[in-house]
């Protein structure tokens, strides 16, 4: 479960998140929508532990524990996963080497035994196949020269391997063609479980046809201005964000 309470965040003196409250329960898929610049990506990065932002007040609780003072890797080991909007290219690091390092680092942190290479490879291959990720891609440098679709599928592969208790998908749907979107959405749906929560950040309702959310939140000017069920996304698709782009409307 993720609870964001009264979160105020600024960067360079400019307020980005303004008294933000948001709760996503275990097993819940929440969609976070809103116009450009409303603070959605900032929220995801603050939750993941990026240090470029100043958290003025507020708490972020993961499964009841405040994680704001934890390093990003510790947050990850405690079950948090962020699928990046723009996955970082890391030349010189083979994807499979990285996957194994990440997987075992988390296990080590949790006091679990590291997995042997053959056992690990079995897991990778099973997940990779579902996401149409080739052996060749796994051998290549992480995200380096990957197409947009390949990068996004690689994010989902990492999520599948790391089995987080809470996952944030930051515009994972953007830049995907219809087929790639379906592959990614299937990957997400396969991971839906009563013990795992999702926050899906998106501009478009389209992805929500494939990954049907339990709740939809609209964010504008650094706060949640409206919350509802999946029909809210359909409504937004018709009316746009015009109503939310100026001063926040009263929800």
């Amino acid at each position: 479960m993720l609870e964001v309470k009264n979160l105020n965040v600024s960067v360079g003196g400019r307020k980005i998140l303004d008294d933000l409250d948001l709760t996503v329960r275990d097993g819940e898929v929440a969609a976070l929508m809103g116009p450009n610049g409303s603070g959605k990506s900032t929220l995801s990065h603050v939750i993941a532990g990026r240090k470029d932002y100043i958290v003025e007040t507020g708490d972020v609780l993961l499964n009841g524990e405040n994680i704001l003072n934890l390093e990003p890797d510790v947050r990850a080991a405690k079950g948090l996963f962020l699928a990046f909007q723009y996955p970082t290219e890391i030349p010189g690091v083979a994807t499979v080497t990285f996957l194994k390092a990440a997987f075992n680092a988390q296990r080590k942190h949790r006091g679990q035994e590291e997995l042997s290479t053959p056992d690990f490879m079995k897991r990778v291959k099973a997940s990779a196949k579902r996401l149409e990720i080739t052996q060749d891609m796994l051998k290549r440098a992480l995200n380096a020269g990957f197409s947009g679709g390949e990068k996004k599928r690689m994010e989902i592969l990492q999520m599948a391997l790391l089995e987080p208790s809470f996952a944030i998908l930051d515009e994972t749907d953007s830049g995907l063609d219809i087929d790639a979107l379906r592959v990614v959405a299937d990957g997400v749906n396969a991971l839906r479980s009563p013990s795992r929560g999702f926050l899906i950040i998106t501009h478009y309702q389209r992805v929500l046809d494939h990954v049907v959310p339990d709740t939809v939140h609209v964010m504008a000017q650094g706060r949640i201005v409206r919350s509802g069920g999946k029909e809210l996304a359909v409504e937004l698709e018709k009316s746009g964000y015009r109503d939310y782009s100026a001063e926040p409307a009263v929800a």
Binding site: R50, D73, T88, I90, V93, F98, H109
Partner: peptide, 28 residues
Amino acid sequence: LDQLFYLQTRGLPFAQAEALLLEAFAGE
């Protein structure tokens, strides 16, 4: 810093993330 953050969010402690990037830098 983007690369470091990315690796950290995947569970690699700072020192390990840094070493991985340095190894890649020299390894090329």
